[in-house]
């Protein structure tokens, strides 16, 4: 255990989030069993009033979780100096077996939070709260994720042993190694860049011009999720070397370091946000437009899609900028 204020802050945030998520999940069960918007019963009115509390608490928790993700990574990066062998956040995350899972689950929390907030927004537009059941059912998935994230973070931080010799990016993200990270690094940079740019362009175009089919829209959401992973892979295999200006450094975490002008945050933020918007929009399409939202929902989805398209283009633009700025030439 390392007594470090940022760690205490993260643990506090995780604990608070878990408590709120559990309370919200318990409330969700009640909503799923008793919610009846057409009834004016005392119970229904009580439930309705309580949704204000639960929604506000969740909004606070979700915003907190998004901030916590940034804090988590930033802190891991800074703590790298404490561990022999660690050069960036990755090394710190690898100090014990809980670090990486904690990080990945935290990303999951980020994305699901964002999707839930979008769903909530749509729900509150309809006079009969058309998505309430879906929203609270979704919470039953969200809550375990938050609790898991809290548990993993506690395990991770409590077991941080400064005497551990960890391995960092130069060992893991190398094409010669084995394992997922190595495979990601070994991806052909040309292919990676094609996927990255054409994917962003395609998704932006589809998002802008697919006001039509509902199932196409759902597909778009799925594609958004898929592209997220491909884009991360492309960053690892191609964009990262451009930023570091060395063909062999593939780390997706070093990008976040101050010496690269925090370019990583600039690169990841639009990608994460666009992905969340796409997933949210796709989920709404899958749920279908209820009667009370016949007009407003398509308009809302269109807004989401537009924002996603802009963000995808921003992501591609920033990626392009890093390539153009770089002195490295990977592909002739």
């Amino acid at each position: 255990m390392i007594f470090d204020p940022p760690i205490l802050a993260l643990l506090l945030a995780a604990a608070v989030s878990a408590v709120v998520a559990i309370a919200a999940a318990l409330f969700a069960v009640r909503v799923l069993r008793h919610w009846d918007i057409r009834s004016g019963s005392a119970l229904q009115i009580r439930l309705e009033r309580r949704t204000y509390l639960v929604t506000t608490a969740l909004k606070i928790v979700m915003v907190m979780q998004m901030a916590a993700l940034a804090l988590f990574v930033h802190n891991a990066d800074r703590m790298a100096i404490l561990f022999t062998g660690a050069m960036c956040a990755l090394g710190t995350l690898n100090v014990n077996q809980w670090g990486m899972p904690a990080f990945l689950v935290q990303i999951g929390v980020f994305l699901t939070s964002a999707v839930w907030l979008l769903l909530n927004r749509a729900d509150e537009m309809g006079r009969d709260y058309p998505f309430t059941r879906a929203k609270y059912a979704f919470l039953l998935l969200f809550a375990p994720l938050v609790v898991a994230s809290a548990i993993l973070q506690w395990l991770y931080f409590l077991n941080l042993d400064p005497n551990v010799i960890t391995s960092c990016c130069s060992k893991l993200f190398t094409p010669e190694g084995s394992g997922l990270q190595a495979d990601l690094s070994a991806m052909d940079p040309k292919l990676a860049l094609i996927i990255l740019f054409s994917g962003a362009g395609l998704l932006a175009a589809l998002a802008l011009f697919s006001s039509a089919g509902r199932w196409l829209h759902v597909m778009l959401g799925i594609l958004g999720g898929l592209y997220f992973m491909l884009a991360i892979a492309a960053i690892i295999s191609a964009i990262a070397p451009y930023i570091y200006e060395t063909p062999n450094h593939h780390c997706p975490f070093c990008l976040l370091k101050p010496q690269y002008g925090f370019i990583g945050y600039l690169l990841y933020l639009p990608l994460f946000a666009a992905t969340a918007l796409m997933l949210g929009s796709g989920l709404l399409a899958a749920l279908g437009a209820p009667k009370s939202l016949q007009q407003r929902l398509p308009a809302y989805q269109k807004r989401l899609n537009w924002s996603a398209a802009v963000l995808y283009l921003a992501f591609a633009g920033i990626a392009l900028y890093t390539i153009l700025r770089s002195h490295l030439i990977l592909i002739g």
């Binding site: 918007i37 057409r38 004016g40 009115i45 309705e48 009033r49 509150e124 006079r127 009969d128 709260y129």
Partner: peptide, 22 residues
């Protein structure tokens, strides 16, 4: 406030059964 029973119409809109927000 909401009536305990019965309906209230504003022009053609049923307003007595709306959730608080609306």
């Amino acid at each position: 406030a909401r009536p305990t029973q019965g309906r209230i119409w504003l022009d053609d809109e049923l307003i007595s059964a709306l959730p608080e927000r609306f």
